[in-house]
Design a binder for these strands. Structure first.
Lengths: 221, 221
DNA sequence: CTACTTTTTACGGAAATCCGTAATGGTTTA
DNA sequence: TAAACCATTACGGATTTCCGTAAAAAGTAG
């Protein structure tokens, strides 16, 4: 079993539960970080001191406070860690259950497990730790569908980005101009209209307002 | 101090933290309910058996599963309990920090405390238990502003309702027609435009889409 | 290279929004 | 009662979105 584990989680009560779980698994060295930046620094220090962490368990969302952070979310943290230290296992433990997000974490950032905080969260987390220790990936049942590559595809990041810009108050014309400055293609007003129209159909939205509301409810933006 | 307490919370790890806290406070009888309905029934049974709970600590959001519930949220539960058994103290313990919601819970449902789950959540929860035991109300610093009746007023339910209809995909014209069928006044297209314009200014929104996005983020709809 | 498909872009008209101005009607105040 | 005030409604024009059609550009297969 792992011997040195870092838990990145800002709620002290949740951490308490995770801590006892890890202790029960026989893990001796368990560190906590309440901020993503702290987690990053601890891991970095571990590597430099030749006493590396073997596993990182991290939440996704952290409450903001006065301290400005380099890493605002567990997503950023997981991405950075997996890029710099791919040998360190990463388990994401979050209430979030949006498939889109899980997909990104697994496929693009290559995290090793995704566990949903829920009634059976701690049990699943135990399973995840075991699986990851055996070099397997683990997904909570709620999000297992994320990796079956059939459903709700053909919505790409560009589409999502369009809706995000809309939700920030830009007009379609402004989005077009913005994309041109960024040299992102397609960028014509017409194309933007067409993509948004496709999304409206797909999400059964009456208009752009409705579309933004739906996509926000789905947690895609 | 209280002797018999019920904790309504569906995440087992969070409950673990709360449990140890209550134990440290010297509370002997601590029950947990993972569903709002269970919590309600336990409290009811306690009253019937002349062994009533003195305090209920409840979360707001519960994960859905196969069991259909009479009470879908901690809000419903708190409301019902305070209505039927006003002598039972109620502390809401949630990540939610929307002032509007806190205001409703305190002013309309008369819960005794509202504690935000956060880094210092357990510490604050301890304070809340003490305060409530002394017949005081307690609010986390994050939401203390909820009861200061000065800010962000002059936004009434009608305004919110307009934005809600917008987010459901209705055009301003359709909203006007809808209000007429409901004999709700004002209902002219012009009035609706004017109200929405006022809201756009107030929330610094560029357009209706932006407004809906902002109001959704604030949790007002 | 050619034929075919898909994507991007362009254009035009109808509908909806945005925004200022102004008339109407009801209530308050002097 | 008259004046002042405020909310509601009406209206007109500029801008934006919506939606269909179609041309240009890019990608694919034979």
């Amino acid at each position: 079993m792992f011997t040195k584990v870092l838990v990145s989680e800002d709620m002290d009560d949740i951490h308490k539960g995770v801590y006892t779980l890890l202790t029960d698994l026989g893990i001796s060295e368990i560190q906590q970080a309440q901020y993503c930046d702290d987690a990053y620094l601890k891991i970095k220090k571990g590597e430099l001191d030749a006493a590396p962490y073997e596993l990182l368990i991290t939440d996704l969302s952290f409450k903001q406070d006065h301290r400005t952070q380099k890493f605002e979310s567990g997503e950023d943290l997981a991405k950075a860690i997996k890029k710099e230290y791919p040998h360190i296992k990463v388990i994401v433990y979050s209430v979030e259950d949006r498939l889109q997000r899980v997909r990104t974490l697994i496929n693009d950032y290559h995290v090793d497990a995704y566990v949903c905080k829920s009634r059976r969260g701690l049990t699943e987390l135990t399973n995840a730790v075991h699986a990851v220790f055996n070099n397997e990936t683990y997904l909570s049942p709620e999000v297992i569908a994320a990796l079956s590559p059939k459903n709700e595809l053909e919505i790409d990041n560009f589409d999502i980005e369009l809706v995000r810009q809309l939700s920030k108050g830009l007009s379609q014309d402004e989005i077009s101009k913005y994309l041109k400055t960024q040299h992102i293609s397609p960028n014509s007003l017409s194309s933007i209209e067409k993509r948004l129209n496709k999304l409206r159909v797909q999400f059964k939205a009456n208009n752009a307002i409705h579309l933004v509301a739906i996509v926000k409810d789905l947690g895609l933006i």
